[in-house]
Nucleic acid binder design. Structure first.
Lengths: 126, 126
DNA sequence: CTAAATGCAAACTATTTGCAACGAT
DNA sequence: ATCGTTGCAAATAGTTTGCATTTAG
C-alpha cells in the first residue's frame, strides 16, 4: 500500500461524512500539497475495486465514498444530503431468493431531511 | 404534454430495457430525425421531476431511465447490465421505521449475470 | 533494478445551459 | 402576442488516460 492509498483509505474509512473525490482531495492536500486530483481518483478506484471502500452513486450528484461497515443510506430528495441508517439486514433474505449468485446489495431510502423539512415549513407559514 | 415529451414517455414506460439517454435519442430519431440530444435530456428530466419515469444510477455508468412500475434491480458487477426483479416490498417496514418522512426507496442487488457466469466458467476450464 | 505510483495535461463522457428561432394556443 | 419548446453550440462537471518522471521495495 502506497502513501496516498493509505492516506485516502484513512480519510474515507474514518469519516462518517459522505465525501466526494474533490473533498478527499482537499483533505489530502492539507498534508500533501503536491497531490493531484487524478491520483485521488486513481486510488479511490483501486480501493473500491479491492473492496476496501464503498462508492455511493445518486442520480445527478458526484459519487461519494464511504467506509465499508454495513449500513444503508438516507438521501434527502431536497438537498441531496446523505445520512447513515441501519436497517434490517436483507442479506439472508436475498441469498434465499437468489442463491449463491448474490453478491451484495445497496439500499437507499429517500426522504426529506429535518433541515429541509423545517425550511419548507417556515416558507409555508409566511 | 409536448410531442417529444409524450414520445419519450412512451419509449421509456413501454420498455423493459434500461435505456440510456443516448439509446432513447436513437430510438426517437427514427421517427423524428431532427431531434437533438439536449431535448431528450431536458424531457427526461421533466418527466423524472414529474414522477413519471425513474432514473437509475449505478456508479460509473450513464444513468438509465425506467418505467415507474414497482420493481427492484439486479446489477451485474461484471458487465453492468441491469435486470428487473420483484423482491418483497419494503415500504411498510420502512414507513414503520421512518414515519411519514419516508418517500420511496431504491434497492439494487449486485450479482454476476448468467452470461458472465458462463463466460467466466469457460475461461476457467481452459 | 524493476515495477508500480505519481504528476500533469489532455481527453473524454455525460449532462446542462443560454439563447435565438419556432410553434401552439 | 405570448409562453413554453426546440435546435444548436458551447459550457460544465466528473472522471479517466497516456506518458514522462519519481518512488518504493
Amino acid at each position: 500500500m502506497t502513501r496516498y492509498e493509505k492516506e485516502i483509505y484513512g480519510i474515507v474509512s474514518n469519516s462518517y461524512e459522505h465525501l466526494t473525490a474533490e473533498k478527499i482531495f482537499e483533505e489530502l492536500k492539507k498534508k500533501y500539497p503536491g497531490v493531484v486530483l487524478a491520483t485521488v481518483y486513481n486510488n479511490l478506484n483501486k480501493l473500491w475495486e479491492a473492496g476496501m471502500i464503498r462508492k455511493v452513486s445518486v442520480e445527478g450528484m458526484a459519487d461519494r465514498y464511504d467506509r465499508m461497515e454495513k449500513h444503508d443510506h438516507l438521501v434527502c430528495r431536497h438537498c441531496g444530503k446523505l445520512a447513515d441508517i441501519g436497517l434490517e439486514d436483507l442479506t439472508l433474505s436475498l441469498k434465499g431468493q437468489l442463491g449463491e449468485f448474490f453478491l451484495s446489495y445497496d439500499l437507499k431510502v429517500f426522504y426529506i431531511c429535518p433541515e429541509c423539512r423545517e425550511r419548507l415549513n417556515n416558507e409555508n407559514e409566511r
